[in-house]
Design a protein around this nucleic acid. Structure first.
Lengths: 170, 170
DNA sequence: CACTTGATTGAACGATCGTTCAAGAATAAT
DNA sequence: ATTATTCTTGAACGATCGTTCAATCAAGTG
């Protein structure tokens, strides 16, 4: 609270005048964070093919040296809060997932990804991957670049049809 | 602190007699958590093939209904702490990763996984996947089962050599 | 049985938490 | 110039944080 007040140049009274509560401010920050993420994705879309957007986004988000945090604010909020905050984080993640799905669909249209894959599934996996990678990138001494390269290879491999696996369910 | 004291039946003095500090207790809990995880993995190893151990572990850990938490204590600690706690979480994750690598190596010997894959890479990816999936499983209304099924399919696909991708680096 | 040792107790510490509020200062409308 | 309105201020709230400590109690030892 002290730090927030200092950094915002607001004494308690003003703080509560400007924001309803600490949680209120957090919610605003979370929304902004999500909007920024979406904006970055949109920016990539103007100049890159859909599949390349997904690949570059992955790289950007995990390897960015300019950005402060490796791990994702949305996933951290999801894991560490309850109630309104958690729900909002979840909503933003869903929104992102939808964007990813659209990109996967477009990549299919462009024949960069084989039609036999399910865009919704791909989007979910992509997001889970992203969260996992970003968490791993928080580890000291992690070679994030290699991890990302492997993931990217996985994305590129989607140009071929899914392998017919013996899907023996247990 | 109040809750800890209540649940342990310890007044402040006794608490600090038994544990050096709150962080000390947390460290103990973290070690226990890691040991339990390793024990569960070892238990699977007595009756299953290496690849099946990895698959079952994935299922167990993401889908378990008996266990309280979906997300992993190690990754949460990694993301939300600094210093000694973070370092310890990292160490435990490394240890787990090593176990996974061994299993992947064994699966290669058993010809369940193609020799062309790098066990160290596979272990890293597997762990990142695990963390990502467990985070996703925290989301309300998530179909964790489908997510897991997709991951399992990915593991089974490793019986074939890695796809020769145009690894065009940017 | 006196006696050292170890554990348990409960009060208290200063710090911070998130928040409220009455009083004052600045700004705009009349 | 005066009033109405909004903003800012700083003190204070009760709660909890993580921790310390002197005092009390129990157990085992000689």
């Amino acid at each position: 609270m002290k730090d927030l007040g200092d950094v915002l140049g607001l004494k308690p009274g003003s703080f509560y005048g400007a924001f309803e509560s600490k949680e209120g401010l957090f919610l605003l920050a979370l929304d902004r964070y999500a909007a920024d993420g979406a904006a970055r994705l949109a920016e990539l879309e103007v100049s890159l093919e859909p599949l390349e957007v997904l690949i570059d986004h992955l790289r950007q988000v995990v390897l960015a040296t300019d950005r402060p945090a490796r791990a994702c604010m949305l996933s951290k909020t999801l894991l560490e809060t309850e109630g309104a905050l958690k729900a909002r984080a979840d909503a933003h993640l869903s929104e992102m997932e939808a964007r990813f799905a659209t990109l996967f669909r477009k990549a299919q249209s462009a024949a960069d990804i084989h039609r036999a894959h399910d865009p919704a599934h791909l989007a979910r996996r992509y997001q889970a991957d992203l969260i996992g990678l970003r968490a791993m990138a928080e580890r000291p001494g992690t070679d994030a670049a290699t991890l990302v390269a492997d993931s990217v290879a996985g994305l590129r491999a989607l140009s071929e049809p899914p392998r017919a696996d013996r899907v023996a369910e247990t």
